[in-house]
Amino acid sequence: MPGLLDQFGEFMQRDRSVHPDAYTPGYKTSVLRSPRNALISLQNSLSEITGPQFSPDELGPLDNDLIMNYAKDGLPIGERIVVHGYVLDELGRPVPNALVEVWQANAGGRYRHKKDQYIAPIDPNFGGCGRMLTDQNGYYFYRTIKPGPYPWRNRINDWRPAHIHYAISGDGWAQRLVTQLYFEGDPLIAQCPILQSIDNEEAVRGLIAQLDRSAFIQLDSLAYRFDIVLRGRRATLFENRVQGGGK
């Protein structure tokens, strides 16, 4: 059954050129938190090609609605937006049942976190996190308030562009990914040391959500489109063959 083998093959090697290096001194915290040794490459075993599975009954009905999932006595303040897109693998195949978790600041750039001391106020009706599973086509969507930019102690006057954090759990452990979504046209994107940790311009463009007029909701919400690509599985054409050079 080639289909089945294809479904469960090893993952293609991670192309490190699209990712930031571990040591990127412009982003100061990376200096003491990056390994000095090279990573040791591991051919996939069952430990890497399998991964946790999630089911819809673990999620609540408002988990993908950040406008309503923490509303206490009214609606949160800010720009109402829908974010949607597909989770695909490198071969363009949909990744169904992927767990997509998102978190963000409120409209003023303030996080609901006990360690955040920024002067901009908490919004009593906004929590700032959500989660969802992709459908059979790899499609996901959620509704939220567009986050504001945020100052941080890197250089003394550094500001993050508006962004939404993502964590994606695909089908296999080797696909696990955290990243950040940015918004089309934001002039802070070009100045951000965290984004500049990525050398590859095309890879940076891939993190910028595009305004999506076709998905606007009239008199209600703007929309942004953001697709995510996870590592692809190689086809296993010959299984359990004895391999040369193996220990």
């Binding site: 990914l177 955290v178 940790s197």
Partner: peptide
């Protein structure tokens, strides 16, 4: 062949999304 989406740091407030109780609030 598409390129894998680039990684970015999870940042200091990763708890909000992945462990909201640790961030200091209850939502899910």
């Amino acid at each position: 062949e598409l390129k894998e989406t680039a990684s970015q740091t999870a940042g200091p407030y990763v708890h909000i999304g992945l462990a909201p109780k640790a961030a200091g609030f209850d939502i899910f």
